[in-house]
């Protein structure tokens, strides 16, 4: 029996070569190049995807570890013709220049919104015991710091995320 996982709602066979990272699986085997390779060593965040709703770095993940899990890549978040509200906000606030780190920033932000709602503290959370965490700009900045942007579009990215997070509407679940 072939082992499978789900990528953007579709069942996918796990690779035979255990060396294949989740990143290379989606890019090279599934031809979903929206997830980007910026360092392949866990230092830039461009390869961020959602696994069962949690953001992880697909470059450090061996695909074989994800049997039975549900992976969402940027292609599963929204398409050019049917954008996720956060993708639309990135365009409106010019939250990118070259666009290479962008899919990772967007997937990361979706995962981050869940973490804030769940009450996961961050390095800048003043009161660890507080049940609710206000999504201040510094909270967003700290929590997004695992996603590098070299074009220097940090302000636009935080603007876009702040608009969605503070809109007080839950982010819709990514399309499956």
């Amino acid at each position: 029996m072939t082992m499978t996982m789900t990528v953007n709602g579709s069942p996918v066979s796990l690779p035979h070569d255990a060396r294949v990272s989740l990143l290379d699986l989606v890019r090279e085997h599934l031809h979903l190049p929206g997830t980007k390779k910026g360092c392949n060593q866990g230092a830039c965040g461009a390869c961020t995807v959602l696994v069962d709703g949690e953001r992880i770095l697909s470059c450090l993940a061996l695909a074989v570890q994800f049997e039975g899990r549900s992976v969402t890549t940027i292609e599963g978040v929204g398409t050019p013709g049917a954008l996720h509200p956060l993708q639309a906000a990135f365009i409106e606030h010019d939250g990118f220049q070259c666009g290479y780190c962008t899919p990772g920033q967007i997937c990361s932000a979706i995962g981050m919104a869940q973490e804030i709602r769940r009450g996961v503290p961050s390095h800048v959370t003043a009161d660890l015991a507080a049940p609710d965490i206000a999504p201040t700009r510094d909270e967003l900045r700290e929590r997004m710091s695992g996603n590098l942007c070299r074009c220097g579009t940090h302000n636009g990215i935080i603007d876009a995320i702040a608009e969605i997070v503070s809109a007080d509407v839950l982010l819709p679940e990514p399309a499956q």
């Binding site: 965040g45 961020t48 949690e54 953001r55 450090l60 990361s108 503290p121 390095h123 660890l128």
Partner: peptide
């Protein structure tokens, strides 16, 4: 880091964890 018992009783541990790496890496 997010476990209530850790946050309230062992804040040094929560603080140390969230000072490390990035959220994506801490999730893994």
């Amino acid at each position: 880091a997010e476990h209530p018992a850790v946050r309230t009783r062992y804040p040094v541990l929560s603080r140390a964890i969230v000072a490390g790496a990035s959220a994506q890496i801490r999730n893994m």
